[in-house]
Design a binder for these strands. Structure first.
Lengths: 337, 337
DNA sequence: GTTGACTGTCGAAGCGCTTCGACACACCTA
DNA sequence: TAGGTGTGTCGAAGCGCTTCGACAGTCAAC
């Protein structure tokens, strides 16, 4: 391995000069800089990450904790993770991938060892056990998701409460009075995952305000579970004409089942989904949806974090405004006989 | 931050002793060890990763290059990545997440800087441009996927050629004579992705041997693209009674379309898929499938890599044997009029 | 011409850990 | 009792980089 000292010798300068050429922290004359850069290229020099981290107490690594759960729709997580990775690279950071498995211990390990300069946490629960640790360290962090108490934390998330409200409003405007919500798996609610509960809250509040009837059913997703859920919904509320789906793996099954039962979408039943664009546009019916802006969330999280690392900006909650795109799955409520 | 020296002082021993307690590389008396461990706990000591990496030239980090492409079915990738992360942690390694975006440069960066001790590459093309770099370094690496030339490389993959053959055999045994293959997106083939081409090879070879007619059509996935593909298939080969699907996002659309067209599965048409278990069992019909053992692949890749890092084992190609699970989507070919 | 302010470069002191050789001591054997 | 063999511990020398203070040299201003 070529070292900085060897580069310095090759270029006929001191090693500190090479270091300053690399970091740009002091001005270097053009001729010297060029000579050094030439040597770097010729020798194929790469700074040693460990030495750099030790000397500067900066690893240029951002830890990303992604959930490992199987009851979550992974593509969204993956999309966020990829956006985070790309964004981080653009700012000169690498990503250390931590699976949720380790839980709070991972936070301790990373902050304690200086392995990473900062962390991004995904899949935040309303009362997440990792939060006290984050508050008790000076290591910058950003949550993707919104816990109950955001005091002293930086969070980035879609405004799921507004999302819920938006879905209800859309269906209300179309004249629907009985709305069913096909939600995430029961375990997601049991865990008090922020986004699920807040969506539900938004849905319920707005429905109450507008005088609609709302029926919420968690659903495991997949064909069978969705069929069971659907049956129970129509059993309990035969008048249901509007569906809000917040569970990607229940969306296509739901559409298929409705079709099979002879309920036309959107003539008899309207469907609104909360899901990534791609899912909504690739389904068997183009689905009216509020997109989960995974990329945007990942990007913003990195931006917030880099801002904090550079000493700018404080604690802030960034809530992205939801946007509802009307497609072919929603239309005027059927006229009651 | 607490340092090793502080722990040593607190325990009344030299810092090298603390280091040996931590690493176990020299024998330490029980009393000393306990005293040191006590101090470590009391002071809340965490070894500094940078210093450790510098002194030992070992970072205990494994780099994982995952593709960033959008034309690949991400859940499989994610599943592998998560399995890799879990496996790595079990062996004391962390995972550095590299997106395919950087390409060969990422390999250079990581090997050059000592950021990671080893790498795992996913989404390998038959003639991958990263391979020469891997061969030219002593840094251990494992590919998940199989390039054309495996000389000097360690690879882990499902035996996709056997997978293709297995699908054809199953359909042949059921009496199907005309088989259509709904494949991955065209871009996947254009890139000469190993698994796609090898599956196709297995399908074609076995079909030829058994005297079956095989029609292969790449497919973007999603409802519309699948509909178009399906139309073209029946247009060209109206007799088609067996489908092999190697594209998760085309599977459910295919089933829905067949249903819509009044073609019963499996009475009129049999469907065999190459996909994760979950996709096969959660579809609207339980699909006969060869599972892509993502977890197993991730686990094996880590094992191979750790073996190499510990100086055991050499270059090896691990091909996992495919297993076909018969479910409700395949049955005897319809009797020709 | 002297003063002062800059600029560009250097030397050296760490950063916190691992690891090697040395060494003190206890124990056994001859 | 002298010599050999282990055991357990210590000291010190780095690992390759960053960064701080120092210091020539240059140039403008008075």
């Amino acid at each position: 391995m070529v070292t900085l000292a060897e580069v310095a010798q090759h270029a006929g300068v001191s090693s500190s000069t090479v270091s300053y050429v690399l970091s740009g922290k002091r001005s270097i004359s053009t001729t010297t800089r060029q000579r050094v850069e030439e040597s770097i290229r010729k020798l194929g020099y790469h700074p040693n990450a460990g030495a750099r981290a030790l000397a500067s107490s900066r690893s240029n690594i951002i830890a990303l904790m992604v959930p490992l759960r199987t009851d979550m729709y992974v593509p969204v997580m993956m999309e966020i993770a990829v956006a985070v990775a790309a964004g981080a690279r653009a700012h000169g950071y690498d990503i250390l991938l931590l699976t949720g498995e380790e839980g709070p211990d991972a936070v301790r390990r990373v902050t304690g060892s200086g392995l990473a300069d900062a962390m991004i946490l995904m899949d935040v629960e309303l009362d997440d056990e990792r939060l006290p640790l984050l508050r008790g360290t000076q290591q910058p962090s950003v949550l993707i998701g919104l816990p109950a108490d955001t005091e002293g934390l930086t969070c980035v998330d879609l405004d799921f409460r507004a999302t819920g409200a938006l879905c209800v409003e859309h269906l209300a405007e179309l004249g629907h009075r009985d709305i069913a919500v096909v939600g995430e798996a029961p375990a997601v609610y049991e865990r008090h995952t922020g986004f699920a509960e807040r969506t539900l809250d938004g849905l319920r509040t707005r429905a109450r305000e507008l005088g609609l009837r709302l029926l919420h059913r968690p659903c495991e997703g997949g064909y069978d579970a969705t069929a069971a859920t659907l049956a129970r919904v129509f059993d309990e509320r035969p008048e249901t004409s509007g569906f809000v789906v917040q569970n990607e793996s229940a969306l296509e099954p739901l559409l298929a089942l409705l079709r099979q039962q002879g309920r036309a979408v959107p003539e008899d039943v309207s469907v609104v989904a909360v899901c990534p664009e791609q899912v909504a546009t690739q389904a068997s019916v183009r689905v009216t949806s509020v997109a989960v802006p995974a990329q945007e969330m990942g990007r913003r999280a990195v931006e917030q974090l880099v801002g904090k690392l550079d000493g700018l900006g404080g604690d802030e909650v960034v809530l992205l405004a939801p946007e509802l795109t009307v497609r072919a799955s929603s239309g005027p409520a059927p006229v009651r006989p």
